[in-house]
């Protein structure tokens, strides 16, 4: 779907991106992970031509993006920014309608699609006529996402989409976004510096440093078979939590009825139930932990 080949970009004498190549399959979520200044945002912006590479090429669906008009290209790619980038002089409804209007949609179609997204993103329809400054941070970020999804672009680029939110809101919205059916089908490239976020949202993670890719692979690959010292060092502090998040319960307890649930999520659920004391759960946290440690030894 997206293929980047040997991208290089300098700003003055500083090399921001130095020979980066990767591929994102259709429907896949790729996370560009790294500290500030590692070149991840520059890489992202080269995909919708907000920044032109000095050398190298990006293909979308096999077509070199340089052969397309930048404006026309961008209208077909959803773009979500850290500071949401909502127009302060437009109401929420008008903000959401920007790209459809650029594509000359009919008003009724715009309204219909907006209603649909409002519903899916748990947005109160009464905010449609409000200006962005009247919204909470979480609402602003949801509106920003709704705006990028309006014309249902196959590709979505997100630049630290949860970066401006407080911790609790961030985790809540992240869970919500992850569960959103609109996002499941999308090819998504997301920039973040938050390791937890990368592990939760990413099918694959591209760990970058100083303009270069240190390792690219699934969360499990990065955790359990780091290809160099930098990669293992990067995850050291949060290692246990990340491991719990990247392993499915079915992997340590084959035949467990709940599929697609990580050990971490199961533990959270169990803690919750214990507090509740209403249900008798057969599985105990201690059992889960023992099974996990046994799995790790293998």
């Amino acid at each position: 779907m997206i293929k980047a080949e040997n991208l290089v970009r300098k700003f003055g004498s500083q090399v921001a991106v130095n020979g980066i190549s990767f591929e994102v399959k259709e429907g896949e979520n790729l996370i560009l992970l790294g500290t500030s200044g590692c070149g991840k945002t520059t890489t992202l912006r080269m995909i919708n031509r907000l920044i032109e590479p000095d050398s190298g090429t990006v293909f979308i669906d096999g077509v070199d993006i340089r052969s397309r008009q930048p404006e026309e290209l961008r209208r077909g790619i959803g773009y979500v920014l850290q500071n949401h980038g909502l127009f302060p002089h437009y109401t929420v409804a008008e903000n959401i309608a920007i790209v459809p209007r650029l594509l000359h949609w009919k008003n009724t179609d715009i309204r219909q699609r907006a209603d649909e997204l409002f519903h899916k993103l748990n947005l109160d329809p009464s905010i449609a006529e409000k200006y962005p400054t009247a919204l909470s941070g979480g609402q602003q970020q949801r509106v920003g996402l709704a705006r990028s999804l309006m014309v249902n672009p196959p590709v979505l680029l997100m630049d630290e989409p949860f970066g401006a939110l407080d911790n609790l809101t961030r985790i809540a919205i992240r869970h919500e976004f992850k569960a959103l059916d609109e996002l499941v089908k999308k090819t998504l490239v997301m920039v973040t510096h938050d390791v937890q976020e990368a592990f939760e949202m990413g099918d694959r993670i591209c760990l970058m440093d100083k303009g270069e890719i240190k390792q690219i692979g699934t969360p499990e690959e990065l955790l359990f078979s780091p290809s160099n010292e930098f990669v293992s060092g990067f995850f050291r502090e949060q290692r246990l939590q990340l491991e719990l998040k990247s392993v499915l319960v079915t992997e340590i307890l084959p035949g467990y009825p709940e599929k697609e649930i990580t050990v971490w999520e199961k533990m959270e659920a169990l803690l919750h139930i214990r507090n509740d004391d209403s249900l008798e759960e057969q599985l105990k946290i201690e059992d889960l932990m023992r099974a996990f440690l046994a799995y790790k030894k293998k």
């Binding site: 930048p70 026309e72 773009y79 920014l81 980038g85 127009f87 920007i98």
Partner: peptide, 10 residues
């Protein structure tokens, strides 16, 4: 950020 969003939307 607003200008970048405008450009990014095409």
């Amino acid at each position: 950020a607003v200008i970048e969003a405008a450009k990014g939307m095409g």
